[in-house]
Nucleic acid binder design. Structure first.
Lengths: 341, 341
DNA sequence: TTGAAAGCGCTAACAG
DNA sequence: CTGTTAGCGCTTTCAA
């Protein structure tokens, strides 16, 4: 560590003004105990000397940090990028700082991150769990320390707290039905997890649509990608190769969309003539793919904003506790040319 | 603020083991002054009781926070998302925490963010400046407080510190030359700033290529987008409408690519027959646009990683100071169908 | 309305 | 190798 410049302290201000430290401290925080006169004097000096309080000293004293921890599986995904935007927006408005952590879809990493949060580093946390996460002991441990947690998007139903999500079940049902209406008699469901809340709900919606439309569910229509991109791609190719006319694909996450396009190109299959495609996606370029991709677009910014607002509220209001509730911000099915008009 | 659970302290551990606080403190940080025996005893108790040190108390004592501040113009851009990934990677490896802030391209916001950093909240900062930023007083002020700063991508040449960038000049020159070689005799340069370091360099590279190829530079080939997307779009349309065969476009940032595709579609112009297009872009979907977009792909992850590594090194090594240097990680021209093969 | 004093929980000399 | 003693800079009772 290198030597830092010796900063101004409250003590120096106090001496300068002939006031006590506590008076300065209160004046700076605009306490009602302090007269307007001295507040003005203090503020004038603060301005003049460019005094900036040490946040860590103040955290230590007040036992709160004005920072929230955000835990994400990844950032290179339109959904999460937009969600961060929403979170940051609320944080900035309310004077909160945001510490960001990536679990990289890994449970152990996520555990380690939450463990650190037990230190009091953050006042509250916003989390979208890793795809590997199936237990919630690490979350429980944090909640036991009275750190408020709000889930967004990828939630854990078993944990008793607020969850901001979109209408996954309904969106997937609608999307599937859309494919069926457009003539698909067999629909592949692409995913990358069996356990993630969002995937389970989307799968359930998919199944419901099949049921409602007299199509039978078959395990071999469910394609679950793993960590070996190459292997997954070959599997996808194989599936598509054997596919006859009337096949549709529902990709349950954004990152699965491009491989589908790739495979169709490689196999010389035409979208939507040979295969119709819908994907959950927040990517701007969906509209410019060839052909334009029909998507289920999630209100990512809104979800981030709502989650952060709720957390901040829980942090600031003495008489407001996070309830065990789901707040649902609906997605939109945007029909484009990858499904028949 | 709500009451936090009363946490374990070093003092309690000390009492429990009949040791002094300082011994515990040192043992926990694996100091060489402490015997292996007591280290083990301490660690055993730490494990057993699940003791987690209070980071703010430790910051206050040691005058360093093990956190770095990252200031970005935005996140919903492949380049920045990937850069964050690289930064987070290095941070996680070295036990640093990352506070993220968005300037939203706004100078005043950026100033406010850096001002806060003067408090000692972060040990160092990584910044890519807003497009509005043309002064560097806010950065100087921070550096005066001995807070190390590393620029990445969007730098300020006038500030004496390390800058991690890509070969903007050369990439733009190459891209422009590519367009010329493919038959363009007029090339539009799309940007969204006159002042940003990256844009200036890219523009200079563009000019050089024109010069080298006996094409003359004309101001009316430079299209600078502002904040009014609609107006900008109309301007673009107008330009394209009046464009004859042999026109090429070089988009100097990712977000300008899709509007070009949109305009061509609206005007029924064909890429690359009527208009050839190249864009600086890190988006995965470039390869799947219609037609696939020729891009200059920046090593975003690498840039983030390099910047973070350098900063961490500057923070950890007593005898290592940030030099006034540019570290250049080269971009790649990826030729696709939006330019003639 | 202001101030004195006792921390917050940890680090950092310095002694022993 | 271990302990003692001061803080770090601010907040917070509690008195005045």
């Amino acid at each position: 560590m290198k030597e830092k410049i010796n900063n101004l302290t409250i003590k120096m201000l106090a001496k300068e003004l002939g006031l006590s430290v506590s008076t300065i401290s209160k004046a700076i925080r605009d306490s009602h105990e302090i007269s307007d006169g001295t507040k003005e004097r203090v503020n004038a000096l603060v301005q003049k000397l460019n005094y900036i309080p040490n946040p860590y000293a103040s955290s230590l004293g007040s036992r709160n940090s004005k920072t929230i921890g955000v835990v994400l599986p990844e950032v290179t995904d339109s959904f999460f990028a937009q969600a961060i935007n929403g979170i940051e927006c609320v944080a900035q408005e309310n004077g909160y700082h945001v510490l960001i952590y990536l679990s990289h879809e890994n449970f152990e990493k996520e555990k380690k991150i939450l463990k650190d949060f037990e230190s009091g580093r953050v006042d509250g946390v916003l989390i979208s769990v890793a795809k590997e996460t199936i237990q919630h002991c690490h979350i429980d441990a944090l909640m036991d320390k009275a750190v408020p947690i709000v889930f967004f998007d990828r939630v854990m139903d078993e944990v008793t707290t607020a969850k901001i999500i979109t209408n996954d079940y309904e969106s997937a049902r609608l999307a599937t039905e859309h494919l069926i209406k457009k003539g698909c008699n067999r629909i592949l469901f692409l995913s990358f997890s069996h356990t993630l809340s969002i995937i389970c709900k989307r799968l359930a919606g998919y199944k419901k649509a099949l049921l409602d439309n007299q199509l039978k569910y078959a395990d071999n229509n469910i394609l679950t990608f793993g960590n070996d991109a190459k292997k997954d791609y070959l599997l996808l190719q194989k599936k598509l190769k054997s596919a006859s006319k009337g096949v549709g694909i529902l990709a349950s996450v954004e990152k699965l969309a491009l491989p589908i396009y790739q495979a169709c190109e490689d196999l010389q299959l035409s979208i939507p003539e040979d295969i119709q495609v819908i994907s959950f996606s927040n990517s701007d370029s969906a509209a410019f793919l060839h052909p334009p991709l029909t998507t289920i677009t999630q209100p990512a910014f809104e979800i981030g904003k709502t989650a952060a607002s709720l957390l901040v509220k829980a942090l600031e209001r003495r008489n407001f506790e996070l309830r065990n509730e789901e707040i649902i911000v609906p997605s939109t099915l945007v029909v484009r040319k990858s499904t028949i008009g």
